[in-house]
Structures are given as C-alpha cells and as structure tokens.
C-alpha cells in the first residue's frame, strides 16, 4: 500500500458517497447515466470473482463487497425509487459496443487463457470506457449539477491516482501489471476533456457547461 493507491481508493469511495448524497438530497437521479452504472456493476462482478475462492485480504475484501453492493444499490435506486427522474430518452449510448470491444480485448490480452483471467482483463478494459455513457449524457444535456461533476471527478481521479501507484510499485517492488496500466491510462485519457472543464470551470466556482 502506498499513498497513491490509498488516495485512489479513498477517491473511489468518496465518489460513491457523493453519488448517493446527490440522489438523496435532490431526490433525483437526473443527469446520472443508468447505463454507466450498469456497466460498473458488470465491471465489479467480473473483476472480483476471486471473492469466491480467496485469498481474502481484509481491506480488499471489504472494499470489493462495498463496490459491488453500492453499485447494485444505485441501480436499484435508479430503477425503482427514483425512476421518473431518469433521463431515459437521452441516456441511450450503445453499450453493446463497449461490452463487445472489451471482450475482444480480453480475449487478445490476458495473463492466461482461463475464465477468471479473461474476466479480470475484460473488467479492466470495460472499466476504462464505462464512463462514456455518462459523459455522453453530459454532452447531450450540455450542463450538469455541480455535485454530479464532483462524482465524475472523484471516480476518474481514482484510476488516475492508480497510475503513480503502478509506477511506484514498478520501481520499488519490481511489480507491474501491463493490462491494468494500459487500461488505466486509456481510462484517464477518456476523462481528459472532462477534467479540463472541471478544473477550468467547476473548481473556479462556475457551473459545468460545455461549449455549444
């Protein structure tokens, strides 16, 4: 565990609490992409298959169960409690391509051609693009509630912070997972435009608005 990894995980945790806070306080899931949320459930279920056979490290196990549980809970909230506020008409990014593309990448790049390794690789590629339906929804509405942008930022910062963590581990421990590193870099590039607008507008106290 190093400071980058810890900050990344805390950022990931924070993103979930910000999202739940947004839904509860505004009593609405407007501006949140159901499709991205569903992809995250798929990401965690395929990434954390090792919950079934261990080894169960306390910190990792608690976090894994929390990420699976909270993402399923958000889907439940969006599907039932706050269904009328969901922008179904605008939230129509074709996730089939993201899932199919990630699966092909997983078949091509994996540590071993076994079910769990292919699923692990699939989860990393899918996570790298899972925010796209959310960013697409943002693009279509052209603006976002500030709290929603904090959520997206914290979620993106998690993987961005894992990059110095990987560099640190490569140098200090001689350990490197190329699939995770490449997928993490792609994920951070996917977020680049959003980060730019977040830093130049939201941090300066302005509303998140995209140029027309």
């Amino acid at each position: 565990m190093n400071i980058f990894r810890l900050l990344g995980d805390l950022s990931h945790l924070a993103s979930i609490f910000i999202l739940l806070h947004k839904i509860r306080t505004t009593k609405s899931c407007a501006g949140i992409s159901f499709r991205s949320q569903a992809l995250y459930v798929l990401v965690y279920l395929t990434r954390y298959l090792d919950l079934l056979w261990g080894p169960w490290l306390l910190y990792n196990t608690v976090m894994k169960l929390f990420f699976i549980g909270s993402s399923v809970y958000v889907l439940y909230l969006m599907k039932f409690d706050y269904k009328p506020s969901h922008d179904m008409g605008l939230d129509n990014f074709k996730v089939e391509y993201l899932i199919g593309g990630s699966f092909v990448m997983a078949l091509l790049f994996n540590l071993a051609f076994t079910f769990d390794e292919v699923m692990w690789s699939f989860s990393l590629w899918l996570e790298s693009v899972a925010i796209l339906p959310q960013l697409f929804l943002l693009q279509r509405t052209g603006e976002a509630e500030t709290i929603t942008t904090h959520y997206i930022f914290a979620l993106g910062a998690y993987r961005a912070l894992y990059i110095p963590n990987w560099l640190y581990r490569w140098v200090m421990e001689g350990r490197v997972e190329f699939i995770a590193v490449f997928a993490g870099i792609i994920q951070t590039i996917v977020y680049a435009d959003f980060f730019y607008v977040y830093f130049t507008k939201v941090i300066q106290g302005q509303k998140f608005e995209l140029p027309a």
Binding site: R5, D9, H12, R47, D50, P55, L57, N60, M63, K64, F67, A112, W120, Y162, N165, R175, E177, A180
Partner: peptide
C-alpha cells in the same frame, strides 16, 4: 516462476 500472482489491487 510460473506461480500465479495474487491480485491485490482494486
């Protein structure tokens, strides 16, 4: 060695 590495990240 060919021993499988434990996935210790999230």
């Amino acid at each position: 060695n060919g021993e499988k590495k434990i996935k210790d990240e999230l």
